[in-house]
Each structure stands twice: as C-alpha cells, then as structure tokens.
Simulated scan of single mutants.
Amino acid sequence: MKSKIAYILFFGLIISKGNAQPKAVEYKDGNQVLSGLSIVPAKQLNDKPGVLILPAWMGIKDHEKEVAYKLAELGYQSFIADIYGVDQRPTNYSEAGQKAGYYKKNIKEYQTRIQLALDQLVKHGANPDEIVVIGYCFGGSGAVEAARTNMKVKGIVSFHGGLGRDEARTIDSIAPKVLVLHGADDPYESKEEIEKFQNEMRTAKTDWQMVYYANAVHSFTHKDAGNDNSKGAAYNEKADKRSWEAMRNFLKEVL
C-alpha cells in the first residue's frame, strides 16, 4: 500500500493524456527498488518500436514525462528509467550532482541500471529488435554508454549530454547508430573532449552524427532552465524544436 502511495506522490495523478496509457513500474537492482514509468500509446506503430528515456540528473521530472507523451503521440512506446532508486532521488542540484557524479565514476553500475530499464521496456511490450535509447544531460551520457557497450538497440540520441570517456577504457566497435545533439556554446564540454569523442566514434567505426545548435548552452531542451546563457545552462526554444525534429528523423531512419 505504501509503495502505491509513493507512486502517486512521485508521478502525480497517473491519468491518460491524449492517447497514452501511463503506468508506474517497480523493478529492482539487487535490493534497491527502482520505479520507472511505462507509457504505451493507444495506437502503436506496426513493429511496436520502443524508446528508452534516460532522465537528466534530477531524475524523472515533468520534462521526461512530456517527452514520453510526445513520443506516444507519434506511436512510440517508451519507458522512463529510474537510475537512482525510490529512496535515493535527489532533492536539490547539489545532491543531483553528487549522485550523477557517482554513476559517471562507477560507469558499470550506470550501465547496469540502463540495461535493467531497457529490460522493462521490452517486458512491457516493445519490440526488442526495434529500440532506441535517448537521454538528456546526465541521461545523454547514459545514452552514449548504451552505444559504447553495444546494448541491443538500433541507435542512441544524446541531448546536451556528457561525452567524456575514461581513456583507460578500450575502444570497441559500436553497432548502434549515434546522434549527438549539442549546444554550440555549451561550456561543460571542452573542445578537447569533443575532439576525443569524435575520434572515438571514428575508431569505433560508428555510424554517427553530431549536430550543433547556435546560441545554445547546456540544458537547451529544459524549459525550467531559464533563459540566461551566461549561467551555462538555459532553455533555447529554437534549439529545442530543431533537436526534436532531428530525433524524429533519426527514429524514422533507424526504426
């Protein structure tokens, strides 16, 4: 009973929006309880393609839910991953930075949480052969990791995500197609790190694309990020709309 109440408090009223049928889903990583959100459109595309959504550092928020509903309108089933756990969610940016930083340093644990969420997407009806992973900020870093570890997905999309990689890691061939959507003025990704990422993609013989958006900094798809670029993170309506269309075209191509 307490678990169900927690779902309601966390996700708000779980009601249908448009043609989507949302459902809170509890799953586990060992003893850690995780709680994601599955959204199945009333009218799915023929092959029942699925999209795994990896949230930004604050976890599942309105932004991720809005993305899931918009995907449902296009006929895509989705699952929003819970990376932290029901009793581990950050309450402020400081906590979010610490928790996201932990998973970036302990990358195998992050990869495990992504795979568990991917399993849930398939368990709830998505075609295991028709899946794309998308992520925002911290989640964008996770999407890139899904490609690096060759998870069983056709492609990944990173929105203003981190691109860094421990140079001690070997570079293996990457099968999923990669689309990186990046703010041209994002201060959190150095030119050196971007160059290393691009060289990694070449070495891995990846089918990859990287699109830059003018006057856009970090978090350009997040409406709650404000509009002051000098802070390093800000919403950019034009970049938001253009990156969404780029993702739509990518989904049509790979799925």
Rank of each mutant, 00 (worst) to 15 (best):
Q88S: 15
R89L: 15
A143E: 03
T206C: 13
G97M: 07
K231Q: 11
T112H: 12
F79K: 04
I5C: 11
S94P: 02
H222Q: 01
A204C: 11
E200D: 14
L179G: 02
I60T: 02
Q77P: 12
Y103E: 03
I174N: 11
T112R: 15
N19S: 13
A234K: 06
K48W: 10
N106W: 04
P22L: 05
Q32G: 02
N127I: 05
A96P: 07
F197A: 06
P55V: 09
S158E: 09
I134N: 04
D47E: 15
A117Q: 05
G59T: 07
D82F: 02
D186A: 01
Y212I: 00
M151V: 00
G142T: 03
S230C: 09
D29P: 00
M210I: 14
K238E: 04
G135T: 04
T206Y: 14
L255K: 12
H218C: 07
S173P: 08
K152Q: 14
G85L: 11
K2P: 06
H218E: 06
G18M: 01
M210D: 05
F79W: 01
I174F: 06
G162A: 09
N215P: 03
I134Q: 08
V132Q: 03
K108R: 13
P187T: 00
A246S: 15
V25G: 10
R242I: 00
I83G: 02
Q209N: 14
D172G: 11
F10C: 01
T91R: 08
F79R: 02
I174D: 08
N92F: 06
G30T: 04
L181K: 07
N150C: 05
S243G: 03
Y84M: 03
R202T: 15
L163A: 02
K108T: 11
F138L: 07
